[in-house]
């Protein structure tokens, strides 16, 4: 929470334009405008990156993985620099983390899944659905799996699976 706030003040004090490259992983942002060559902007718009659209940055390795209009898109850093953003995400300004990043005793709310596969479907059916409070009860003695409480019962899942679940604190 704090680290994020710091970043926010930094950027506003510098009055520097932030691009998608500067957003944190898991952060929801709004597109302010597109810059750069017309042909690039045109391509971005075709893929749904237009002004005032909310996007969520999922991952930042070599290229950038983000979610726009509920579909996942991978962008080169070059293209991502064309996207200017403001931090007005929909996730009510709270920080998005992976469930596996929380420690014992932490409470959070399920935000979303980063992938769509059978494991996530299984988790959803077991009651791990967006908006549901979740608590980390404990880690197993060897650090994996994790015991969580959801909908009033206890569930054990491996870190791999917890890596698929985004939560807000």
């Amino acid at each position: 929470m704090l680290s994020w706030l710091k970043k926010e003040t930094n950027s506003s004090s510098a009055t520097q334009e932030r691009t998608l490259c500067d957003a944190n992983n898991g952060q929801c942002v709004k597109i302010k405008c597109l810059q750069g060559q017309d042909s690039d902007c045109q391509r971005l718009r075709e893929m749904g990156f237009s002004e005032d659209v909310e996007i969520e940055k999922l991952n930042d390795n070599h290229a950038i993985l983000c979610k726009v209009c509920q579909t996942k898109v991978i962008l080169s850093r070059q293209l991502a620099k064309n996207i200017l953003i403001s931090d007005e995400g929909d996730a009510s300004m709270s920080e998005i983390k992976l469930l596996s990043e929380l420690t014992e005793g932490h409470k959070a709310t399920v935000h979303d899944f980063i992938e769509e596969n059978d494991t996530c479907a299984r988790l959803e059916e077991m009651g791990v659905t967006p908006g549901e409070p979740v608590e980390i009860i404990r880690y197993a003695p060897l650090g994996d799996p994790i015991e969580i409480r959801i909908r009033g019962y206890h569930l054990s899942l491996r870190k791999e699976e917890a890596d698929l679940i985004q939560v807000t604190l």
Partner: peptide, 11 residues
Amino acid sequence: QKPIFIMELPP
């Protein structure tokens, strides 16, 4: 098979 380990811990 992707190993899935989602297990309930009953009381």
